[in-house]
């Protein structure tokens, strides 16, 4: 790895760290219903929403009402998203005259965007109208992100409050998140992206004369290329900030109209981890103990830093089989070297590897390089980060509430060691919380592994795979892991078919909500519990020791549940490669 690679990585994480405190403090003010600057220009809109929806903002909900409001809201979003795709052929803003999306693909896409997964089994520019992209997908980008953040805030209230049964109002949390956090940040980022060349237009496709004529598969001369455009920048901004990841174009952030320059690449990469990282600080502020937030942020960073050098080194080293053929893959003054298959030259090895780690550490899923073309160990890293449960930064809201489930497991393990009832931030962790945390942690490996096992056992699954052997297995394992953990990135090489559309749709849906419901149940259980005063027997949860315990718990659970499957995929592929 060159020193420039290290400098780029350090600058990235340095800027990210610098943004954590101001944004985290601001978000805490939004959630504490304190006055924020944006309430002056936007407060009327917030009040209008409440009045139109018949919501009384002071009416708080118990956890069951909160959970059912969340589910009902998401159900309406799912049906709307399904219908808009199916009916796009007769709806306006369809300059390319696209027909309605096929039912199985529409249900997959609806489940995917509803849950912040943004798994894409379609090519955006060749399948979806501007209306579907804007009013269907981009709207869900906002709402799914806001849903995740609302669930997190409800859990924080459960941990902080000492009495009562309520954990806030889902409608208020959803509205304030969208209006005061996601919309302003997206607007700023979208304008910057447009200034750099990301397109934003309602025009239909643009024709461009080819420099060299070619011919199609029927031998007919082709002299013109069709270049797709559309309202891209507005969608890309929230796609990154909301850890959604669904691109306007099929090539996602490798496409020059989504991510044209090194600056857009840096800003989009920053946007991926910005809110998940800042929410740790929000957590500390709302809890009244910032150290609790910092230790969780440190745990997230530690999990990423453990594997980031591996992906950069694996990609920079290049393919040994090509070296044997005399291909020069060394880093030199004339060449960036390394494995450049599936990567954009303008981003190179480091920015492709860093993006791959960031997008899979967060449950973003956008890509600026094709993970399928990474070296086996390079591909191992994104897969591993997804398999940790999207808790190393993770999705907006969902990453932190996922990590808090591991915190509960960690304090339980520590409690077993010393023979005391486990506590976290003064709240006793009892049988109910452990049952709920267990459901939350076990559901994603269950969905990913059973799903992948089923897919490799049936013809509909294996026939969709583009590569034979261990790499093909990795493609299926990656797809199910990505969907179960609501990441949404694809290893590529897997073709869509009705079986995978439906199977992955189910996995996506349960991966989100079967995890979210127990989290809210824990919030409801904890909210009424008194805070136990700190004593000499209390396990401090803000120390480096707890950091090690937490990281160890995440690694052990991740390693033990997924390692056999990983051994059959990228590990075997690496061994075969070096054995040749």
């Amino acid at each position: 790895m060159s020193y420039l690679s290290v400098v780029q990585i350090l600058i990235y994480f340095g800027v990210l760290l610098a943004a954590v405190q101001p944004l985290g403090a601001y978000m805490a003010r939004v959630y504490e219903n304190e006055r924020v600057l944006l309430e002056k220009p936007l407060g009327w809109l917030e009040r209008l929403f409440y009045r139109a929806a018949g919501v009384r903002p002071d009416d708080e909900m118990d956890w069951k009402t909160y959970a059912k409001s969340m589910l009902l809201f998401n159900l309406m979003g799912a049906v709307f998203l399904y219908l808009i795709q199916r009916l796009q052929g007769v709806l306006p803003l369809n300059p390319q005259k696209f027909a309605g999306v096929a039912p199985d693909l529409a249900v997959n896409t609806a489940a995917s965007f509803l849950t912040n997964t943004n798994w894409q089994f379609y090519g955006g520019e060749s399948t979806l109208s501007h209306l579907t992209q804007m009013f269907g997908l981009a709207v869900q980008n906002f709402l799914s992100a806001a849903t995740g953040m609302a669930i997190l805030v409800a859990l924080i209230r459960g941990l902080r409050r000492k009495s009562g049964k309520t954990i806030g109002s889902f409608w208020v949390d959803l509205t304030r998140t969208t209006l005061y956090i996601l919309l302003p940040l997206s607007l700023v980022l979208a304008v910057i992206l447009v200034s750099q060349g990301v397109v934003q237009t309602f025009r239909r496709d643009v024709g461009a004369a080819l420099l060299q004529a070619t011919h199609d598969d029927k031998g007919k001369d082709v002299t013109e290329q069709t270049i797709s455009v559309g309202p891209v920048a507005s969608q890309i901004a929230i796609k990154q900030l909301g850890t959604n990841g669904g691109g306007f174009f099929n090539a996602n952030s490798a496409h020059p109209f989504e991510n044209p320059t090194p600056l857009t690449n840096f800003l989009e990469m920053l946007a991926i981890l910005l809110i998940p990282a800042a929410l740790c600080y929000t957590y500390g502020v709302m809890l009244g103990d910032r150290r609790q937030g910092w230790v969780l942020l440190a745990a997230m960073a530690a999990l990423v830093f453990m594997v980031l050098p591996l992906v950069v080194a694996a990609e920079q080293a290049g393919n040994p089989l090509l070296s044997k053929l005399g291909v020069d893959q060394r880093l030199s003054t004339l060449s960036a070297g390394g494995n450049m298959e599936g990567k954009e030259v303008r981003f190179g090895i480091v920015n492709s590897s860093l993006w791959a780690a960031a997008t899979t550490a967060a449950s973003n899923g956008s890509v600026n390089a094709m993970h399928d073309s990474f070296m086996p160990l390079g591909g191992f890293v994104p897969l591993w980060l997804i398999m940790l449960g999207e808790v190393a930064f993770g999705g907006v809201g969902s990453g932190l509430y996922g990590l808090l489930m591991y915190v509960i497991i960690a304090v339980f393990i520590a409690g077993l060691m010393v023979g005391r009832t486990p506590e976290y931030v003064g709240k006793k962790i009892e049988a109910f919380e452990m049952k709920m945390a267990s459901i939350a942690i076990l559901i994603t490996p269950l969905l990913a592994l059973v799903g992948a096992a089923t897919a490799v056992s049936v013809h509909a699954g294996t026939s969709a795979v583009g590569n034979p052997g261990a790499h093909g297995f990795s493609e299926i394992l990656y797809a199910f892991s990505s969907c179960a953990n609501n990441n949404g990135s694809a290893f590529a090489g897997l073709s869509a078919n009705p079986f995978l559309n439906i199977a992955l749709g189910i996995v996506i849906l349960f991966g989100r909500f079967v995890l979210a419901v127990p989290v809210l149940a824990i919030a409801g259980s904890l909210v009424g519990k008194n805070i136990v005063p700190t004593s000499s027997g209390t396990l401090p949860t803000h120390t480096p020791l707890f950091l090690v315990l937490l990281v160890g718990t995440v690694l052990l659970v991740g390693a033990l549940t997924y390692f056999p499957a990983l051994a059959l995929g990228p590990v075997v592929e690496h061994l075969i490669m070096i054995g040749r």
Partner: peptide
């Protein structure tokens, strides 16, 4: 027909999660 089936799948999926809310509530009491 296919559309009805697909919408039913979405409603059914989220409906199961709705039941999970009640199951978790029941677990809390027992």
């Amino acid at each position: 027909m296919m559309d009805l089936l697909m919408v039913a799948a979405l409603v059914g999926g989220l409906g199961l999660c709705w039941l999970l809310v009640d199951f978790c509530g029941w677990t809390a009491k027992h």
